[in-house]
Structure formats: C-alpha cells, structure tokens
Design a protein around this nucleic acid. Structure first.
Lengths: 125, 125
DNA sequence: TACCGATATGCACCGAACGACCTATCCAAA
DNA sequence: TTTGGATAGGTCGTTCGGTGCATATCGGTA
C-alpha cells in the first residue's frame, strides 16, 4: 500500500525509557543506572565503568548514591586504597536488583519492538 | 517472603516514556504529543486542549509544528478568525497517526505493567 | 612508610528545555 | 466595519541537570 506516510516511515526511530522512582519522583532505577550497575560488576570498578559508558564519575556517583539512600542499605561494596586505588562490586542485594531488572526488560523489550513494527505497518495501509 | 527490599517496594513507582524521532533525534511523536492530538480532536481547539492539559500554547504549537515538518504534510486542519477565534481539528492523516499510536500503546501498556509486577515479586522472594 | 590510583564530595559554570510575556494576524458574525 | 478569541511566532529570563574542576581520603603493595 502507498499512503502519505510511506516515504517517511523508514526514517522513524523508536526510543523508550523505563524507570522507577520514589514518591518524590527521584529516580531510583532506570536504564542508565541498570546498565551502570551491570558494568560495574563486570569491571569491578566504578571508574572503569564510567569511562566505558562515557558518563562522568561525578554524575554516576551521585546517581548511585540516590538508589542506596532510597533502599537504606548498600547495593555496592566499595573499597578504597591499595595500589590499584580501590574497586567496587555489587552486594548480594545489588545483584538481585540488577537481575530483577534484567527479567523486567526481557519481558517488555520484545513487546515494545513488536508494537512499533505494527505501528509502522498500520501507517503503511 | 521477607527480604531487605520488602519494606520499600510499595513506595516504588513505575514510569515510562515511549517516543519516536527522526534521525536528528528530534521528537516527532510521543506520549505528550499523542495525548495532545487526541484532545485537540475532542475539543476542536488547540487552546482548549492546552488549557486542559496544563501545557502552554507556545510550547504545544512548537511541538506540533515539528511533527508536521517531519512528515511534510499537515496533521492539523487549522482555521483562524471568526467570532470564536478559530478552531483546529485533525486531518485524515492526523487521525490515522493517532489511531496507530493508540494501537501501539494497547500492545505495550499491559506488558509493561505486568513486567513491573513481576519485578516487584522477584524482589520479594 | 611512601606511593598511586580509585573512591568521595563540594562548587562554579554551562546549555537546553521550558515558561512567561508580548505582539501580530486572521476572519465569521454581529 | 468593528470586534473577539484563537492561531502564529519572536524573545528573553529562569530553572535544572550535567560537566568540569577542584580537593580530600583511603590503604594494599612495593
């Protein structure tokens, strides 16, 4: 089918953000923090994770602090000092949080993509 | 089950935004614009829709212009003048766009909510 | 015990988004 | 032909999060 929309549809990009907040609307978990936590676990270091994702250390540190303040217990096991300067890994709770968010994304990602494809198809009709 | 997370889980709120952009990352369709287009059709007026949603007319006008510029044809049928000052309704294409986005949300909303509930359940374990 | 590199934190600055404000324009109905 | 209310569009200041830069602190290892 050919509609007025047709020639533009291939230029449309889909975006979405999913996040969770406390009742003050302070973001306590979202795609950025999720990705960061995963990479910290992988790298064993906040700094290394920040460098790879291109976030500033300053910003990341503040964001992660918000999460811990909300939950009231640490998600990160942070160590300072040593020749290597220090390192950071996830606590058991941190790992559980990441894992739960993994499952969450697994549930929704495909559906959103599917919905988007249907959206495009619908405009082609 | 009782975990460290338990006493905070009821305070967590879910948020999500889904939108589409052109390749310049200019937003061409999203929840805000979608809601606005629907309300314009219902009210027959941009101003009335803005007042109800609490958006400024200025902002809305600029946003809607972006969409039309991207597609290259009007989504809104705007009339100025007359005792009532003017009115705005959707063109056929505007209606189709809104309808496609309606269907899109129908596809994903329930899934996201379901995923969130599972997320909470997972942390309770 | 001196060192090194990461964690920890304050602060001034910057830019984009948005709000507030203003003015111009249009035209059917009175 | 006057008018009222909505559309059309420029501008400027503010807000808010992020960036950049600073400095302090920590403690295994050489």
């Amino acid at each position: 089918m050919e509609t007025k929309f047709s020639n533009k549809l291939s230029d449309i990009r889909l975006h979405y953000k999913i996040w969770m907040s406390d009742d003050q609307e302070t973001g306590i978990m979202g795609d950025g923090k999720w990705q960061m936590l995963k990479l910290i676990e992988e790298k064993g270091s906040m700094k290394a994770a920040c460098d790879e994702l291109g976030y500033t250390y300053r910003r990341t540190w503040g964001n992660l602090k918000k999460i811990e303040q909300f939950f009231g217990f640490p998600l990160l096991d942070k160590t300072r000092g040593g020749t290597d300067g220090g390192h950071t890994v996830l606590t058991e709770e941190g790992k559980r949080l990441v894992k739960a968010f993994d499952a969450f994304h697994n549930t929704v990602d495909d559906q959103i993509q599917l919905g988007f494809e249907r959206f495009i198809q619908e405009l082609k009709k």
